[in-house]
């Protein structure tokens, strides 16, 4: 067998203008779904024709936390769990920017869970993309607040016995105005959902079920990331507007996907301005950014 080593091809991939090519190849494992979710975000940004100077990405820690480092945008890789409050500060200072939080389930739901529910409650105009691979991947496959019951992980070696969170229900009941769930296989629908989430004023939450091949699939003997993609193909059920109490995910169960919530509600800054007017009448100037709207 002959091994042919080619020079790196210089052709330009259409996503290159949105990626930090000096950092590619990325650190993610073969058959990991994260790269696909990044493509969905990049495609969404491109299709929205946003001025990319005005888009910022904030990530926490973990495999998904590395997304900020690969997007060619003003991008912030913060501490574990604190992407949302960091993004909140950024948004309040510069409400003219689109601030997107892109992080994983461990980061956003476990250590950052309190920030998620409170920022959703305040309806801060952020887009949160939560990649759920059911496990702490970066640290070697430990149990997560999303790990389905009976699934094995490095710290639930005999099978998980804790109830996992139902993320769409959590986000919606905390006050999110847009909630959707897709898998990494549903790239086009995911792109549409991200577009809608970015456009939506207020707190939007998109859960993306993505394969973790090296840990979740391996520890549970589920094959490769490709096998998980096939599983999503066979077991995803599109249920737009579903009763969120029914969209929890059991081990290797059907996965309800779709757009679950899309409602109108004044954002944090709208409410602040309303409160200011209520208290001070015409003396109050609507907030237009931390430096007087520049």
């Amino acid at each position: 067998m002959s091994v042919k080593v080619e020079e790196l091809v210089r052709e330009e991939h259409p996503m290159e203008k949105l990626l930090r090519m000096d950092r590619i190849p990325h650190i993610w494992c073969p058959t990991c779904g994260l790269g696909t979710t990044v493509t969905a975000l990049a495609a969404a940004l491109e299709q929205l024709e946003l001025d990319l100077d005005n888009v910022a990405v904030v990530s926490g820690i973990g495999c998904t936390g590395r997304v900020a480092g690969y997007m060619k945008l003003d991008s912030f890789h913060t501490t574990h769990g604190r992407a949302i409050p960091f993004a909140l500060g950024l948004h309040i200072a510069r409400p003219d920017l689109k601030v997107i939080v892109f992080s994983g389930d461990g980061d956003l739901i476990s250590i950052g869970g309190n920030h998620l529910i409170h920022t959703a409650r305040r309806n801060v105009d952020l887009t949160v993309i939560c990649v759920n691979n059911f496990i702490y991947a970066m640290t070697g496959g430990q149990v997560a607040p999303t790990t389905p019951i009976t699934a094995r992980s490095a710290t639930s070696p005999y099978g998980n016995y804790e109830h996992p969170f139902n993320l769409p229900l959590l986000a919606a009941s905390s006050g999110a105005v847009y909630v959707a769930r897709w898998t990494a296989l549903h790239v086009r629908r995911l792109t549409t959902a991200i577009k809608e989430a970015i456009t939506k004023p207020g707190f939007s939450f998109v859960e993306v079920i993505a394969p973790c091949s090296t840990l979740y699939a391996r520890l549970n003997k589920l094959g490769s990331g490709l096998d998980l993609m096939k599983f999503y193909h066979d077991n995803s059920v599109i249920r737009h507007g579903a009763d969120l109490k029914e969209v929890d995910i059991d081990y290797q169960s059907k996965i309800a996907v779709g757009k679950f919530i899309d409602i109108e509600k004044p954002t944090y800054i709208d409410c602040m301005n309303e409160g200011g007017k209520r208290a001070f009448g015409d003396k109050y100037k609507p907030y237009g950014g931390g430096n007087g709207g520049n």
Binding site: E6, E7, V9, E11, H13, T31, S224, G225, L226, M229
Partner: peptide, 17 residues
Amino acid sequence: LHIIKERCKGCGFCVEY
């Protein structure tokens, strides 16, 4: 089709779908 072989990690997603 343009395939950037050196970037590929052989996941097979493209082949499958």
